[in-house]
Amino acid sequence: MAEFITTYGFLIVSMVFAAMLALSLYLPLMTGQLSLASPGFYALGGYIAAVMSTKVFPPTPQGEIFPLVYLLIEMLVAAVASALLAVLIGIPALRLRGIYLALATIAFVEVVRVLSLNLEITGKAIGIFGIPQPFLNKFEYMWIAAPMLILSTWFVYRLERSRVGRAFAALREDELAATAMGVNPTYNKVLSFTMGAVLAGVVGAVSAHFLNTWNARQGTFDAAILYLAFVIIGGSRTYLGPVLGGLLLTALPEVLRALAGVEFLPAFVAQFLVDGRLIIYGLLIALATIFFPQGLITPTMLKRLARRGT
């Protein structure tokens, strides 16, 4: 067990973060908006935590761990900052639809990235390193990551069944009909966009500690597309889809690497599983869209399972 944790602790926490980042993209999608802004807010949250823990809070004495309460304060600040920025950007940008909105949010992510490469406070190209550790090892981040994932998944699950969630779903289904039924499109879209931004920002704050260093490579366009892949492949019509997609796709390259260790595999196959695992990863993403166009989890599937359960 101890060996498993040293080997896979980092991976498991990364999977949990990925699941939440996928949820952060799923939230605006609940109102039908394809926003790829999450990495921008993730980067912002990370920088806030990195700056506060290295420059604002008193240095942690040698041999002691970073106080958890500081981490919680950072998460709170990251949440508030992300929310403010999201409202500021959301109100003008959410008039756009489909691919145009996606491109505008990509532009936002890139602008954040270039800013962080140039600003003194974000450490320019080098970034911020030596971010103090609130836990003894990487796996212990589960103390905070796991409750966050459970809470955010539960939140979205409950949201989908509430009045506001129904208004979101109506906007996603048919914006025009929804507005004719009294749903305020701007308000609800900005709301869902902001909730996604807050989640991404808070995950960024924890992630900065987890990765120990934070730089401009954390919030990139590639990451945005990867989160989108989590959502689409997991299933974009239920809260469980993005969670599962984030967990599975993050684990996949490592699973492929581990598969290479299986004994009876011919040497060249084993070698390819290690060296070519990202080739397989890419192909699997492409194949998944073809064979699971609704994603791995669909609302119908969940309903069927629920019926069998009762």
Partner: peptide
Amino acid sequence: LRARGADPLLTLVSSLGVAVALVNFIQY
């Protein structure tokens, strides 16, 4: 995907998958 009249989003993700595979194939 086109044959099935799939959501354009799927095509976006699918082409992304191909891009990841190609880039890593070159590296391989």
